[in-house]
Design a protein around this nucleic acid. Structure first.
Lengths: 104, 104
DNA sequence: TTAATACATCAATATATCTTGATATATTAA
DNA sequence: TTAATATATCAAGATATATTGATGTATTAA
């Protein structure tokens, strides 16, 4: 029940739906990519990513000073069906803005 | 997006999950059945039923002075998968208490 | 080292949602 | 009619969640 509610409440926010769909659409991205693509302040993005991660949708991999978020694999059937349903919503996403140059 | 969020937010409450599963499990019930089975005040039940109905999970049929709620049919794949997921949660439900005698 | 960068977390405020008790409406029994 | 029953809705207070700006921590470049 608690895990289900955590999963549901993670989806109960327009910003998080956009971020989740953005990652599902673009693949692995770092926090600053999302920050600059969505033009939102970093603490806001960070908080939403944490919620989506704890809800079982995202995984994070830290490389250097960057944190790369991507869809968790393998993803169970229920969360897969949610991602599918979200993709049908035709949410308009901002273009991926690769501000941070990871290789420098 | 709005309909999706409405569906999701309808599930973002423990009481509503219980009521929804209760109806899924018992079939058509009237408001007073739920009220007495859950031992909750009527306005609270009524409000949650409205939210679940507007989220597309329930239908209501009025007969006499009673309002009978049941799972909406046909139910789309997404909402079906949600009901299925909820059934896996093994939520403990109160026994159906048929307080009101509809035939009197 | 020191400074800058990337990210996480906290405290305060704003906003949304839930619960309750009161009241309104519709239906039926007396 | 009038009263009782079943349900819906509203207003007020309580609780939860989102946003912001400030601060903390880890990593890397200078």
């Amino acid at each position: 029940m608690d895990i289900f509610l955590k999963t549901i409440s993670s989806l109960n926010d327009e910003t998080r739906l956009k971020i989740l769909h953005f990652i599902d659409h673009n693949g692995e991205v770092c926090v600053c990519d999302i920050e600059s693509s969505f033009e939102m302040i970093q603490s806001r993005i960070s908080r939403h990513l944490k919620i989506l991660k704890e809800a079982g949708f995202l995984k994070v991999e830290r490389r250097g000073r960057w944190a790369f978020y991507s869809i968790r694999t393998p993803l169970d059937k229920f969360r897969q069906s949610i991602l599918e349903e979200i993709s049908y919503l035709n949410i308009s996403l901002p273009p991926l803005n690769k501000e941070c140059n990871v290789t420098r």
